[in-house]
Nucleic acid binder design. Structure first.
Lengths: 343, 343
DNA sequence: GAAAACAGTGAAAAGCTTTTCACACAATCT
DNA sequence: AGATTGTGTGAAAAGCTTTTCACTGTTTTC
């Protein structure tokens, strides 16, 4: 099925069509369009003119058949509906530039058989490289196949130190969060963490703990409280913490859902957020954070930046410069209404 | 950069390598691997064996150079962080099958210049077809280029009736929602709608209105209340409706955020949800719906099914069978805690 | 026993582009 | 004038696979 457009030229014109129309050989067309070859300026202009009028675009399949590079990259995610892999993908797409490199998207749905299958398919399409986007920050096993192309792991690092990984700096985020509360004169701080089987949960706690220890403080109740990633857990945990220390003046939360549960419970129980008790979330999950009462101050993981970095590292690796190891992306604090200086 | 794996075979073996190793010609290898050609069974077995040991996978670039079909499809979304385009993409990927067809993902970020650019890039990659995923249900202008490949519009339909579009049946969804409340003996029902500039908002209201009219009912306050898509609007609107009719026993909402605002406000004001007042959302946006108190009953748009349909229609179109027009996907009711029969 | 059918294999073309090499012709130098 | 340099162009190969056609032998048919 070939639709002919207004000018009568098929949109899938090949270089031969251009050559015929210009009355020159195929190789002259190629050179005329490429700049940097010796072609009579007049010929070049005429060829370019005709190529344009024919809507000629070189067939990248054929180009790459010749160059050995396809200008395509595989993006293998394990969880498309995850809130984390999408921004990472966007950042990567961004860094690859408009049209320069195209991205094959595959979703393995957490199934390693499926993953293998996708990898093979991508390999048969001769992608130049692969980005594997995880759905949690826990390290994952590297791809088992020996691959002829470079691979970058994003969000979830590879468990092998010889691979290239880009992750969010969760320890630093924990520090950043704690310092934010400490700097607004809070000294009775509780930590309501997420699921302890997640590396993200424990890393954030570790960072925050380090900051408190540096100020000779400790968490309300002596240590962080682990639970789940839900609002309900936040509601229950904050009430428990208040029963331990009724003068608690700050709460750090493992994510925004927990934080939302916390501010909901506090509002119901008549506490003044942020003046009496400041609450800080994590993830900057807009739809939850902005709709909370008050809107949540939180930590943003800069996931798009993470994706961009992953893409850049992949480029370098494709060019032969493999920067192995785990690269961390700094988080940033988003100030909304749930934190403030103490009154 | 070519990594040699354990067996000593490069993973990028070509058909020539296989031919050399098997001591036959290239064409024999091709035929032996293809089934359906006349090849000596012994030769065939030997070739297959060797191809396997060399990890030979045919170069799809070269294959498609020959066949004219690339087995790739472009997926152009306008809003990757949108909650709607992702499930549609997943469904499409699903229907395209594992490895059979690969998907190029592009994000135009709502910018038509960018969109054009992506379309050109995809064209130069000779994709077999294009799916355009919108970020709202409002009809959009069709791509301005005359394309040599078929296009399917998903979620947001094309404004041209000659195109192929797949959308969610919002009118039907409104009916479904209203009937759910009516069938649980509610007869004083309010409708808190979203932003009236969105077709989705007005269509849902239209469907619900039709169902009420059929029962000789009308909405509390006479008609639906339009506002925004936020929780805050839900909170404000439901309090207003109660001031109009303090015996209101059901509330239909334009989306789950509104519904969540509604149940929050009702809980704060001491109403019993779902017994005294049932509340129904829309979108089945899990993270909001499941965390509400009580969890929200809602309408699911079957977006993955929508994506699958889009993919199937694209296949048909690629095979020359263009089913033009707008195809609707039925919604389904998800029953959680916020609706029940009246006590 | 000669002609026809058949089985198995290989050579070659096609698909599109890029790049190298060679050629023809004009212009410059000795 | 003959040799050299330079300029613009085209032919051809390479990259990988599929498919058609042609070519040996072998087997069957009349």
């Amino acid at each position: 099925m070939t639709i002919i457009n207004d000018s009568g030229a098929s949109l899938t014109a090949t270089i031969r069509d251009v050559a015929a129309a210009a009355g020159v050989s195929v190789s002259t067309v190629s050179k005329a369009l490429s700049d940097g070859y010796r072609v009579n300026p007049e010929t070049r202009a005429r060829v370019k003119e005709i190529a344009k009028s024919l809507h000629f675009t070189p067939n990248r399949q054929a180009q790459s058949l010749h160059s050995g590079r396809t200008g395509t990259v595989g993006l293998l995610t394990s969880d498309l509906d995850g809130r984390f892999s999408i921004p990472v993908m966007m950042g990567a797409e961004d860094a690859f530039g408009l049209g320069e490199v195209s991205v094959f998207l595959c979703d393995a749905r957490g199934d390693s058989i499926r993953e293998q299958h996708h990898v093979r398919a991508l390999l048969s399409r001769r992608v130049d490289g692969l980005i594997i986007v995880g759905d949690s920050t826990n390290p994952r096993d590297p791809l088992s196949l020996a691959l002829p192309i470079p691979v970058v792991y994003a969000y979830a690092p590879s468990s092998s130190p010889d691979d290239i990984s880009v992750i969010s700096d969760n320890v630093g985020a924990g520090r950043q969060a704690a310092e934010h509360l400490i700097s607004s004169q809070r000294d009775r701080i509780g930590y309501i963490a997420g699921d302890p089987t997640f590396r993200a949960a424990t890393d954030r706690v570790a960072g925050a703990t380090a900051s408190l220890v540096a100020q000779e403080l400790e968490f309300v109740g002596g240590s962080a409280l682990y639970g789940g990633w839900t609002e309900e857990w936040g509601r229950n945990a904050v009430r428990h913490l208040l029963s331990v220390d009724s003068l608690m003046d700050g709460v750090l939360c493992g994510n925004d859902a927990i934080a939302r549960g916390v501010v909901d419970a506090l509002r119901e129980d008549g506490y003044d957020v942020p003046r009496a008790i400041s609450v800080l979330g994590h993830d900057n999950w807009e739809l939850i954070a902005t709709q909370a009462r008050p809107p949540l101050s939180t930590i943003d993981m800069n996931l798009e930046e993470l994706g961009r970095n992953a893409a850049r590292l992949l480029f370098r690796a494709i060019d032969g410069d493999r920067a192995i190891g785990t690269h961390e992306v700094k988080t940033r604090l988003i100030h909304r209404g749930s934190t403030s200086p103490k009154y």
